[in-house]
Design a protein around this nucleic acid. Sequence first.
DNA 1: GTCTATAGTTTGATAGAC
DNA 2: GTCTATCAAACTATAGAC
Lengths: 205, 205
Amino acid sequence: MLGTPNRNRIAERREATRREILDAAWEVAREQGLSQITLRDVAARVGMQAPSLYSHFASKNAIYDAMFAQAWTECQETILAAEERLAAEGGASKPRAALRVQARTFFDFAVSDLARHQLMNQRTIPGFEPTPEAYAPAVDTLESFKKRLRALGVRRQQDADLCVALIGGLIDAQLANDPGGSRWARLVDRAVDMLANDLGLPQDS
Amino acid sequence: MLGTPNRNRIAERREATRREILDAAWEVAREQGLSQITLRDVAARVGMQAPSLYSHFASKNAIYDAMFAQAWTECQETILAAEERLAAEGGASKPRAALRVQARTFFDFAVSDLARHQLMNQRTIPGFEPTPEAYAPAVDTLESFKKRLRALGVRRQQDADLCVALIGGLIDAQLANDPGGSRWARLVDRAVDMLANDLGLPQDS
DNA sequence: GTCTATAGTTTGATAGAC
DNA sequence: GTCTATCAAACTATAGAC
């Protein structure tokens, strides 16, 4: 009986092909711009003809949708990893250091890939709206952030909103006005401290 | 001799037609999205056929270019008017009130028109880059803002950068997560105060 | 300056053979 | 599941009559 193992192998192969297609789509997005992705271009990079993509994705927007989910999932994993690193160093009890790591990690993640940032945080593709399933990891990431804020004693909705706006503003300014540079990257720590003062967080001991 | 008056009338009529075309383009941008502007659509709204637009603009990007310059010019005029209003009320000597008016005016201007904000502050149209002439009013607006900061004793480049990022972040968060609402609009005054504290501005007397 | 006609491209998506 | 062939639609831009 080799029915089950075969099904697994086939499913794995399918999944691998999907990932190859998404990788190619990210490549195009980074080189040509997010909205400049074409099925022909993506297909060529995985050695296919454009119509073959429809065996793996129902439409072009379905590709954007998978990319959206992928980006937010990866973002959450990156933040989680940074958090665990901080905990291992014993710095998790320092509230300002904890906030600084959150901000820095998210900032670096966003700034390192303009196309990805546009897909995640701006509504730049006409007619594309993420499906609820693709949106879920984005909601999770924000909820995790708010939970961490609560652990620091920051409970009000508007406090979290202010954090989100400030870090997001630094990201957008960096990408728009000094891409590849560090003019706003340098301000992240200062911004977090300003925020921590406003939130009444104690100094780290 | 009616050569000169005729030339004036003709030039005025041309200018009026250009403005009608731009108005129509803004209309399309607000209804369908900035990148969804088509020459057919714009032309139809001014009662023309698409090719006729080429008598007034050299290309589609030339229309975006004129819109870009128009938006920033209007923005600067709006801020200037708000500033003069504050001066008339005798509040110009209060540094925090002055900063608050700047921030609030720019915030309201940006949030009131998503398409305009995208054109002014995001690079969302593939292949469009404003010409130096269209970019000039944007530079002027930023320079004026920095001059006003200097008048308040704020001189470092990074201080202005932080202001720009914070207000920009509030705008983007408002437009992206609560369009038409006021969840981040409510935070503008608080954000300015937080900033003023960080910059060491004295309390208004 | 505006029109009609159309060139010239590009694109997402479908049909059907293999 | 991938291919070839092709559709149907949309768009910017140009040519040339009026």
